[in-house]
């Protein structure tokens, strides 16, 4: 018998002005028989429906076209093997959980005054397979499909939500600043999966960044291209202690691309996969001044250390990893 977890257990959103900081891709996962298992789609193409609801300035047809373009961005990643299929318009809504349909659509959530959109899942808890995923776009905010200066770009936000839809979590590749009214504003981002959206009228979020590409290529590796990328692995240490939740960015010295990752256990161990072979500079930073729950459910994220560069150039081979290394940081 298949047991399924509630969608609410895996809801990821993007906020207009939230409480998050700086840098990387993170795969959503659940515990299956004590093993951390990434959640992924296992049947291709992934069929999705467009709700018929519209929003001021965006018809249902425009909505579907914007979503199509966003899906295409993910499907076009060379090293990933994932496919989507528009299955038609539906009267169902994104809030209809466990109806067997993956629905994208507008909904009004006036109570969520900082949430532009959110993605929910139904996951097979025995395998980690996604069986349904729904995305709502909050009509409490103004939307545009043309980059209008006074509205949020639908395709950009959809590209972010589809990252969640395929099983990616938030990236911390970005910088924010505090707002006088509370919360934070994004200054810059290096990933579509950064949890705070660009401001109104900005369409930069339509284009996947290397961090996003690495994430989806690891989750859905293209068999023909396996071996073309490699990984770095190591630990972030403060004295003798590992730092859970430390964020690590790998910078390709040749291509200038940034891909991030997190230390995901108490030993501070991290792996960043999906990297082009070559030489990398490594930067470790805390999720400082942040709502760490944008990234982790667990408490105990240590943010009391300084941003630190590793003093060795790290080489990524094709199809594997170089020796593990430690990034030693100091307390603030």
């Amino acid at each position: 018998m298949i047991r399924r977890c509630a969608a609410v257990a895996l809801v990821m959103g993007i906020v207009a002005a939230g409480t998050v900081p700086a840098s990387a891709y993170l795969r959503l996962s659940i515990s299956v028989r004590g093993q951390t298992t990434p959640v992924t789609w296992t049947t291709m193409p992934v069929r999705w429906f467009s709700a018929t609801a519209s929003a001021p300035g965006v018809t249902s047809t425009q909505f579907q076209s914007a979503l199509d373009a966003a899906f295409d961005s993910w499907e076009a990643v060379p090293r990933a093997s994932i496919a989507f299929q528009f299955a038609g318009f539906t009267a169902a809504t994104p809030s209809d959980d466990n109806d067997g349909l993956s629905v994208m659509g507008f909904e009004e959530h006036a109570d969520l005054d900082r949430t532009l959109a959110a993605t929910g899942f139904t996951v097979d808890t025995l395998t980690g397979a996604i069986v349904e995923s729904d995305v709502f776009f909050n009509t409490a905010f103004p939307w545009s499909t043309t980059g209008a200066a006074d509205a949020f770009d639908l395709q950009s936000v959809a590209t972010h939500e589809i990252g969640h839809f395929v099983g990616l979590g938030h990236s911390a590749l970005g910088e924010t600043e505090m707002l006088a009214a509370g919360g934070r504003r994004v200054i810059a981002a290096g990933s579509v999966m950064f949890p705070i959206a660009f401001g109104r009228g900005i369409t930069l979020g339509r284009t996947l960044q290397p961090d996003d590409v690495a994430g989806v290529s690891v989750s859905y590796p293209d068999g023909d291209r396996q071996g073309a990328s490699g990984q770095v692995q190591g630990r972030v240490r403060l004295g003798a202690r590992g730092l859970f939740g430390a964020h690590i960015a790998a910078f390709n010295l040749r291509t200038g691309t940034l891909v991030g990752g997190f230390a995901l256990n108490d030993d501070g161990e991290f792996v960043i996969d999906g990297l082009d072979p070559g030489s990398y500079a490594i930067r470790a930073e805390p999720l400082d001044d942040a709502s760490t729950d944008s990234f982790f459910d667990e408490p105990g994220i240590d943010t009391n250390f300084r941003v630190t560069f590793h003093d060795r150039v790290v080489t990524v081979p094709a199809g594997g990893a170089g020796p593990s290394f430690d990034v030693t940081v100091t307390a603030k």
Partner: peptide, 15 residues
Amino acid sequence: ANLLSDNTSGTAFRL
């Protein structure tokens, strides 16, 4: 190491 700035001018934010 550049990030995309939150503006329409396309200027990069240097990390």
